[in-house]
Design a protein around this nucleic acid. Structure first.
Lengths: 250, 250
DNA sequence: CGACTTCTTGAATTAGGTCAATCCCTGTGG
DNA sequence: CCACAGGGATTGACCTAATTCAAGAAGTCG
C-alpha cells in the first residue's frame, strides 16, 4: 500500500494549484506526449489540468464523441470493449503516466470504455486544440505515432498471452508486467497494491475469477508470492519468470 | 477461386510497368496512406513499386531494422509474433490494400514477422524518404495515425474474440470478417478462397487445427457454409452472424 | 452493525486439446 | 505424362485444463 500511495510531490501539487505543466510533479509522465521542454508552454495552452474521478466513474464510453485524450496523473483505470450481446473484455489496465483515448483518433468516437479503478487524477488534452498544436509542432504528432505503435505492440503481446499461454503463464506474466511498470515509475516493483479485483484480472486474461484465485493460492503455496487481499508481494521474480517462460531479461 | 484472382487492371499494370501511382490499378488501395490526388507525385518519389514475394517468403522479421512500410497490391500475408520459448501467435492476415510494418514505428525495429501466404505483389515505402515527406505533408502523418488507431481497434476486437468467445463464435466471426473485407474490395463476399491453412486459422484464433476442421464440418452439416479444401462459400450469412452473436449490421 | 461485495475453496462438468490413423490434393522430378 | 512424396485436411477416441456451480469466509462501506 506504501507503494501505491501518491508520491509526495504530486500531493503537494494538488494543494497549490494551478500550476504550469513544467512544474507538475508528474510532468515527466506527460513526456510520452512528446514535449520538449521548449514546447511546454504550448502544452499549457491545451491541457485542462487536474480533473478527479472516483472509483467506478466513467471517463468515456464507446460511441461518445472523441474530445479529449486523458493523461493519468495518479490512480489507475481500466479500458474495456463490449460485444453486441453484452460480454465484456478488459483491454488494459492503466496507471500514472499513461494515455487513454488514442484509439478514437480514427473514427472520432471512442471505441472503448474507460473507468476509474480508484480515485484518480487526470489531465485532459482537448482534441480541437491539439489538432492546432499538431500543425505547429510536428514532433508531437510523431511522438503520438510512436505511442500508438507501442500500444499495438502491447496489444499483440496480450493476444499471444490469450491465444497461446496457460492460466499460470498468463498470471505470472501479468504480475511481472505490473511489477515492471511500477518499478519504471519508481514505485516498488516487488510489493504493491492491485487496484483491480480478481474478477477484472480474470476478465483481462481470459480466465474465470476462481481460476485467478486458485493460481494465486498455488503461487503462494510455492512461495512465489505473498498475497493478502489486494496487497501482493513478489518473493521470487526469477521463479515467476520461469513460470511465465520469460528469458532472463532484468 | 474466381474471387481471388488478381483483377484485370492490376494484371495489365504488371505488363506495362513502370507507371505512376495514380495510374496504378490498386491505387485506391493506397489511399489509406492518406494521399490526396495532389500528393500523388510525392508518393511516386518515395514508393518502390512492385516487388514480388512467393508463398512462404519473408517480408520482414522481428529485430530487423525498420526500413519499409509495405502496401499489399495483390495476394496476402500473415503477421506473427513469437514467445521466448518458440510459441507463435499469428496476429493478422492481410490482403490487398492493407499496410504492413506500422508497429515498428516506435522502436525502429520490426516487432513482428510478415510472411507471404501466396504469391503477392507489394509496394515498398522507404521510411527514410517517408520521414521527409511527412515533414512536408502533415496530412499524411495524420492519416497514418488514423490507420494505426484503426489497427488498435481491430487488435482489441481480436482480444475480445480470444478472451471471451467460444470456438464456434470465433470461427463464425472470422469468416464474416473475411467476407466483409473481400466484399469491400469488390471481390465476392460469399465465396472465396482461403489463402491460409487450417493450422494458421487455428493459430490465429487460439484453437487447434482439428477444432477448426471439426467446426467447419459442423457448419457444413448445418448448411451454413460449403467448403472444399480452401474454397469456401458462405450460404447463410444471417445464421452465421447469429452464431457469432453479431447484431444485424449489413 | 448489518448488507454487500470480494475472495476463497471444493466438487462436478465440459469445451477444446492431444494423439493417432487415414485420406487426398498438389507439386515435383523422372 | 505419370508416379510418388509430403503437406494439409479430416475424423475418432481419449484426456485434461479450466469453467461452472455452490457455499462459506472475510473485508468494506453506509
Amino acid at each position: 500500500m506504501e507503494a501505491r500511495r501518491i508520491p509526495l510531490r504530486a500531493t503537494q501539487l494538488q494543494i497549490c494549484e494551478p500550476v504550469a505543466c513544467k512544474q507538475c510533479g508528474v510532468y515527466q509522465l506527460c513526456m510520452p506526449l512528446g514535449l520538449e521542454r521548449a514546447d511546454m508552454t504550448l502544452l499549457d495552452r491545451i491541457v485542462k489540468r487536474k480533473e478527479v474521478y472516483k472509483r467506478g466513474q466513467l471517463l468515456f464510453r464507446p460511441r461518445e464523441r472523441f474530445s479529449y485524450i486523458y493523461a493519468i496523473r495518479s490512480g489507475s483505470a481500466k479500458t474495456s470493449i463490449t460485444t453486441d450481446d453484452g460480454r465484456v473484455q478488459i483491454t488494459g489496465f492503466h496507471v500514472a503516466g499513461e494515455l487513454l483515448g488514442l484509439s478514437a483518433l480514427a473514427s472520432r468516437f471512442y471505441t472503448s470504455e474507460a473507468r476509474a479503478l480508484e480515485t484518480m487524477s487526470v489531465c485532459k488534452v482537448d482534441i480541437a486544440c491539439l489538432d492546432e498544436v499538431l500543425r505547429d509542432v510536428p514532433a508531437i504528432q510523431y511522438q503520438m505515432m510512436k505511442i500508438m505503435s507501442e500500444q499495438i505492440r502491447r496489444d499483440e503481446e496480450l493476444m499471444l498471452l490469450l491465444g497461446k499461454c496457460s492460466a499460470e503463464e498468463r498470471i505470472a506474466e501479468f504480475l511481472i508486467s505490473l511489477s515492471r511498470r511500477f518499478a519504471s515509475r519508481n514505485y516498488s516493483g516487488s510489493q504493491f497494491r492491485l487496484s483491480m479485483s480478481r474478477l477484472d484480472i480474470g476478465n483481462y486474461l481470459g480466465l474465470a475469477e476462481e481460476t485467478v484465485c486458485r493460481i494465486f493460492s498455488r503461487f503462494q503455496e510455492g512461495g512465489l508470492i505473498t498475497t493478502e487481499r489486494r496487497n501482493i508481494r513478489l518473493n521470487d521474480l526469477k521463479q515467476l519468470s520461469a513460470v511465465a517462460h520469460i528469458d532472463a531479461a532484468a
